[in-house]
């Protein structure tokens, strides 16, 4: 029982518990906050998986920017909680639960039964170095994945412009 196992257990418990809280929460603000805690747990798991840069990125971008954007929209639109009546949706509700439990149980069971998948070790230039993986990540991003990187920047520009246009008020 070394520290890594304990940290893994705590982080995954945190992530799963708070994602369930998010699922059962009625108020949108509280579900966003539960998701923030879930992403924190996932960031801790990313650190355990030798990806501290991705963990920092998850907290900065996902938990710190995207979910803040969600909060802003919730505050701007002043959304109240979901309506209490589920009359027209009862059959859909039960079918949905059945689908999720069935498929989820099946896939989770298969994953558990499969154990550790046999994967070949990666090739030379992409091997994660022992001490610090950030220089290699930067180098790979700007050499081997350059096209995807540039396309991503264009995509982000499009998203920014598109969001501005979509949410503009039309003054008639």
């Amino acid at each position: 029982m070394n520290t890594e196992t304990i940290v893994f257990a705590l982080a995954s418990a945190l992530a799963i518990v708070f994602s369930l809280v998010m699922l059962f929460q009625r108020k949108p603000v509280k579900s966003v906050l539960s998701l923030v805690v879930t992403f924190f747990g996932l960031a801790i798991l990313s650190v355990l998986l030798a990806a501290p840069f991705i963990a920092a990125l998850q907290v900065i971008v996902y938990a710190g920017a995207i979910l803040v954007l969600f909060l802003f929209v919730i505050m701007l639109l002043n959304l109240e909680q979901e309506a209490a009546d589920k009359e027209t949706r009862k059959i859909h509700f039960y079918l949905g639960i059945l689908a999720v439990l069935g498929l989820g149980g099946l896939v989770t069971g298969l994953t558990l039964r499969a154990g550790n998948p046999p994967v070949p070790v990666g090739n030379g230039p992409f091997l994660i170095p022992a001490k610090d993986e950030i220089p290699l990540l930067g180098k790979v991003l700007f050499t081997d994945y350059l096209l995807a990187f540039e396309a991503l920047s264009v995509l982000l520009l499009l998203a920014a412009v598109g969001a501005l246009i979509l949410s503009k008020r039309r003054f008639e």
């Binding site: 923030v36 501290p52 840069f53 963990a55 920092a56 990125l57 907290v59 900065i60 938990a63 710190g64 920017a65 803040v68 001490k131 610090d132 950030i134």
Partner: peptide, 13 residues
């Protein structure tokens, strides 16, 4: 080894 990104993450929180 992510250094100051930790501080940016905390500011975002």
């Amino acid at each position: 080894n992510v250094g100051v990104l930790y501080m940016f993450a905390l500011t975002s929180i």
